[in-house]
Simulated scan of single mutants.
Amino acid sequence: MANVTFKNNPVTLLGKEVAIGDIAPDFTVLANDLSPVTLADSKGKIRLISVIPSIDTGVCSTQTRKFNEGASSLGDDVQLLTISVDLPFAQAKWCAAEGLKNVQTLSDHRDLSFGEAYGVVIKELRLLARSVFIIDKDDKVTYVEYVGEGTDHPDYEKAIEAVKQLMK
Score class of each variant (00 low, 15 high):
N3R: 07
V4N: 05
T5W: 10
F6H: 08
F6T: 00
K7A: 13
N8M: 13
N9F: 13
P10G: 03
V11I: 15
K16D: 10
E17S: 10
A19K: 15
A19L: 14
I20D: 00
A24G: 05
A24P: 07
P25D: 09
D26L: 00
D26A: 06
F27Y: 11
T28I: 10
L30S: 13
A31W: 01
N32K: 12
N32I: 14
D33Y: 04
L34E: 11
P36E: 12
V37R: 11
V37W: 01
T38H: 15
T38N: 15
A40N: 13
A40R: 12
S42I: 10
S42R: 14
G44Y: 09
K45T: 13
K45I: 06
R47W: 01
L48N: 02
I49M: 14
I49E: 05
S50T: 09
S50E: 08
S50D: 09
I52E: 03
P53C: 06
S54F: 14
I55E: 07
T57P: 11
T57S: 12
V59L: 03
C60K: 04
T62L: 14
Q63Y: 06
Q63I: 05
R65T: 11
K66H: 09
F67H: 04
F67C: 04
N68S: 14
S73Y: 00
G75I: 06
G75V: 06
V78Q: 05
Q79M: 10
T82Q: 03
I83S: 01
S84E: 04
D86R: 02
L87A: 13
L87Y: 13
P88A: 02
F89H: 09
A90K: 04
A90P: 01
Q91F: 04
Q91L: 13
A92K: 14
A92I: 00
K93Y: 08
A97F: 11
A97S: 15
E98I: 00
G99C: 05
G99W: 02
K101H: 09
N102E: 11
N102C: 01
V103E: 03
L106S: 04
L106D: 04
S107M: 06
R110S: 10
R110H: 08
D111E: 15
D111F: 05
L112N: 13
L112T: 04
S113D: 09
E116Y: 15
Y118G: 02
V120W: 07
V121M: 08
V121K: 08
K123R: 12
K123M: 04
E124D: 12
L127W: 05
A129M: 04
V132R: 02
V132E: 05
I134T: 03
D138L: 11
D138V: 10
D138Q: 15
D138W: 01
D139C: 08
D139E: 14
K140N: 14
V141T: 08
V141I: 12
T142L: 01
Y143N: 07
Y146H: 06
V147E: 02
G148T: 15
G150A: 05
P154Y: 03
D155V: 00
E157Q: 14
K158I: 01
E161M: 10
E161W: 00
A162C: 09
K164W: 05
K164P: 02
Q165S: 15
L166G: 01
